[in-house]
Amino acid sequence: MPDVREHVLNGSRGAVVVREWPSREPRYVALVVHGYGEHVGRYEEVAGVLVEHGAVVFGPDHMGHGKSDGERVLIEDFEEVVDDVRAVAELARSAHPGLPVVLVGHSMGGLISARYAQRYGDELAALVLSGPVIGAWELPERLLALDEIPDTPISPASLSRDPAVGAAYAADPLVWHGPMKRPTVEAFARTLETVAKGGDIGPLPLLWLHGDDDRLVPLAGSRVGVEQLRGRRLTERIYAGARHEVFHETNKAEVFAHLVRFLDDRLRD
């Protein structure tokens, strides 16, 4: 893969660091939108698959995440994060005018991507949601009912059946390993409601990927959100035994095959 490049944009709340995985002759742009507490550098393998498939890949570290500015994991308004992703899309389009754009969002990134598609779906060729935080996700309500949010970080074992994934996550200095912050949890709750009421995505093709043993973002809750969001062109892939990060799972080759097959079908439209 060609050398990774970094860009710095003026985001909603300071500098947003954007990673680019270049392609010599790209036929589409892929925007990767990472999840809570992590950073886009964890998507190196996904980006490699997409580059090999013909994409130039861009992905930001969200405010308060990774290399970007802001208090760690503090997001007070997810609409601002959507604005930042739009700025990344504009950066990509200015460098590669005329190419179709697909959006790939995981977990919290699925919430951001769903909202992006509601606001700017006519600018996208396809939407991919992996373990998305949409629909009936019960965690914010449970946490907000407490006087103090407990310091219980994400269990690395909940990410994948591959223990190396959890070990790398636990050792990653750019990953947040502390408690959630109340303003961020409140923002999650508000945005879940906003997406639920924001309408479906009409003709935009949607691929939904989820593990049926996802204990962080349970399948049944996300299904509620997918049914609210889906337009007329939904493809779903549910993986038996898979945990939260299907792109890092033991069956990731199957997941990647489904991803590129979906994109092939959509880019031929």
Rank of each mutant, 00 (worst) to 15 (best):
M1A: 15
R5M: 06
E6D: 05
V8T: 15
G11A: 06
R13C: 02
A15V: 14
V16C: 04
R27K: 14
Y28K: 08
A30H: 03
V33R: 11
H34N: 14
G37N: 11
G37R: 13
E38I: 13
V40G: 00
E44N: 06
E45Y: 11
A47G: 01
G48V: 11
E52Y: 05
E52S: 15
H53P: 06
G59Y: 09
G59P: 10
M63V: 15
G66T: 04
L74G: 04
E80V: 06
R93C: 01
R93F: 00
S94A: 05
A95G: 03
P97K: 01
V101A: 08
V102M: 08
V104P: 04
V104F: 12
G105C: 13
R115P: 06
R119V: 13
G121K: 02
E123G: 05
G135V: 08
W137S: 03
L143Y: 03
T152H: 10
A157Y: 12
A157W: 04
L159W: 08
D162T: 04
P163Q: 01
A167S: 11
Y169G: 07
H177V: 02
M180C: 10
M180P: 06
M180R: 09
P183F: 15
A187K: 08
R190F: 08
E193M: 11
G199W: 14
G202A: 10
P205D: 11
L207I: 00
W208P: 02
H210N: 11
G211E: 02
G211M: 05
D213P: 01
D213F: 02
D213S: 09
D214H: 12
R215G: 02
R215I: 08
L216I: 14
P218E: 05
A220V: 12
V224P: 12
G225W: 13
G225I: 08
E236M: 00
R237G: 06
R237T: 11
G241H: 14
F247Y: 14
F247M: 11
H248P: 02
T250N: 06
V255M: 01
F256A: 04
L259S: 09
V260T: 15
D264R: 15
R268H: 15
D269M: 08
